[in-house]
């Protein structure tokens, strides 16, 4: 992918919606195109956080290991981001990310990206706002998911007689 194509991909990525062109250029300089096969693991639980990804296409499952099996907590698809913990200091990966479909993404080296945030606070501020919005949305979704709204509730069943 040429730089111009990367810029175009970034400009169309919903996660970056509304970002200024000079910030997109800066991101493009740091971006690296990457693709994964189905069932390929992008990162494992406990891995040092290194890469931040913008998914262009395909689907990734965020999984956690339980005795004897993996549980999928959430799936992430094209237009979303993956690995925001790489933007934090000293945090290892908390979950496993496994592709369920062929995945095409742009990868960013976490430390390089955060170094650039330090260099250019406005760039860092704009990006971290995007990250915060995503984290908030994920948190909301997780809370709803926790409610188990479709479950068969305990109780005496329906009230009809």
């Amino acid at each position: 992918m040429a730089t111009s194509q990367i810029i175009a991909a970034l400009a169309h990525h919903p996660f970056l919606d509304g970002l200024q062109p000079n910030h997109l250029d800066k991101l493009a300089m740091l971006a690296c195109e990457i693709s994964f096969e189905p069932d390929q693991v992008i990162f494992r639980e406990g891995d040092p956080s290194s890469f931040f990804y913008l998914i262009l296409s395909g689907r990734v499952a965020i999984e956690v290991a339980a005795p004897g099996r993996f549980l999928t907590i959430q799936t992430i698809g094209g237009g979303e981001e993956l690995g925001w913990s790489s933007l934090l200091d000293q945090v290892n990966k908390q979950f496993r990310a496994r592709c369920v479909e062929p995945v095409c993404a742009l990868a960013f080296d976490g430390p390089r990206l955060t170094a650039e945030f330090e260099n250019d606070h406005e760039f860092g501020y704009m990006l971290l706002r995007k990250v915060l919005a995503t984290v908030a949305e994920r948190l909301r979704a997780t809370r709803l998911q926790m409610l188990d709204v479709y479950a068969r509730k305990s109780g005496k069943g329906e009230s009809g007689q």
Binding site: Q74, G77, Q145
Partner: peptide, 18 residues
């Protein structure tokens, strides 16, 4: 989309609003 996906489920996992 489902709240709890098994290993064989290749669809979405997460709430419908997502």
């Amino acid at each position: 989309t489902v709240d709890y996906g098994g290993v064989s489920w290749r669809g979405h996992v997460g709430v419908v609003t997502a």
